[in-house]
Design a protein around this nucleic acid. Structure first.
Lengths: 218, 218
DNA sequence: TCCGAACCGTACCGTACGGTACAGAATTCG
DNA sequence: CGAATTCTGTACCGTACGGTACGGTTCGGA
């Protein structure tokens, strides 16, 4: 939230163009993402790159933040939920999440973060994690808790419940894509998987069908 | 199966020592896994490395195969299953899988495969995938189908069912570890998670408690 | 119109690393 | 024992790449 706003005006338009160039290079995995290639693609000098972003890692970190600041989908309003609204919201979350992790951008950034995490300096990995797995968690948890408050869901541990939802939605998709598996992720496929995951989630955590107390409405 | 046997006698003892050295270097992520470092650690010359394994990628590929050939756990016998045996077997699978993906070796090899997949040449990624995600799938599916044949499980698509089990067990563990998250994965924690995943899996795919026909017993 | 700041393009430097060459030790085999 | 083979250790080569230096250009402000 504050994070996203900060990232949005943290750089000038010209600098954002540079970050977009980095993203382009990352996504088209063909050629290596060298500082020279970045400067060429962005029509700027390497010296400017280093002046603005410090070093290559700083540039990559800025790119992660920049992409993250763009991705935030609007939060879902979780007041006066009924069962079908909750189901729709969960399904929308699942669709959104599957779409994100299937995107070439997400795959490329996760690969960069993982490579860095393997090289000791794990700050990029933590950043990807914060803007991926943990960001979606913080956005989904209020919805889960609203569902519980309205008697639609039954669970004790919000974190554990979210992790189960995460597993039901993601399954093996992310690791397969990261490892280069060709996995057709069409929109229709994603919608079907999101619906299945949501249904399974309700089977596990849906509250038993009791007459829910008409709280507040006289 | 044949793969494992092939890998076991594909190299001499001396060569296996070299591959173990590569694994050691990969696991202790501190220093880069250069050919010079490998030769130093294995007390052999770089020239021998190139003679035996072709080039650096061939050496890494051989290391993946070598590690995979060691990991295979004994298959589970899936005859005359009753419910508690099935549950135990599934839980054992889950424990085994969680233990593997939490190991420093698995994390390091997956990181290498992912990095390679990002650099165009995806053969290493596919190899890690074949010996990880797909190997566990091929080993688990017979158990699922035996459970169905014995009336303990109800599902149509074996692959889809396995993927759900995979998601319930793995959740966010692998991506978090790959991205450098410190995630305590004690034996007790793994056992608890495996039990929870198995229970959830039965809740989704357990056959309704009918009197199962006493097939074969008079 | 002039000045200075920011920036582009290119050239350059140092180092790290994959891969090769080679001399000498170890080992095998007749 | 001697010849041939295989291996080790080290030195070496070429290249790729992160980072720096610098001359030339654009552009905003006085």
């Amino acid at each position: 939230m504050g994070e996203a706003a900060a990232a949005l005006d943290e750089w000038t338009e010209r600098q954002k163009d540079v970050l977009d160039a980095v993203l382009d290079l990352l996504v088209t995995g063909g050629d290596a993402v060298t500082t020279a290639a970045i400067a060429r693609k962005a029509n700027c000098s390497k010296e400017t790159l280093y002046k603005w972003f410090g070093d290559r890692d700083g540039l990559l970190a800025a790119t992660v933040r920049w992409q993250a600041s763009r991705v935030r989908a609007g939060n879902f309003d979780a007041q006066h939920l009924d069962a079908s609204q909750l189901r729709e919201s969960l399904e929308a979350f699942a669709i959104n999440w599957l779409t994100v992790i299937s995107s070439r951008t997400s795959i490329a950034l996760n690969r960069v973060g993982i490579s860095h995490a393997g090289s000791g300096k794990s700050s990029l990995g933590r950043m990807v994690l914060a803007n991926g797995r943990f960001a979606i968690g913080e956005r989904l948890k209020p919805l889960l808790e609203a569902g519980r408050a309205n008697g639609l869901l039954a669970f004790d541990d919000t974190e554990a419940t979210f992790r189960t939802f995460f597993g039901l939605v993601g399954r093996d998709v992310q690791i397969r894509l990261l490892l280069g598996d060709r996995l057709e992720t069409t929109e229709a496929e994603i919608a079907r998987d999101a619906a299945r995951a949501t249904q399974q989630f309700f089977a596990l955590y849906g509250a038993p069908q009791t007459q829910k107390p008409l709280q507040g409405r006289i």
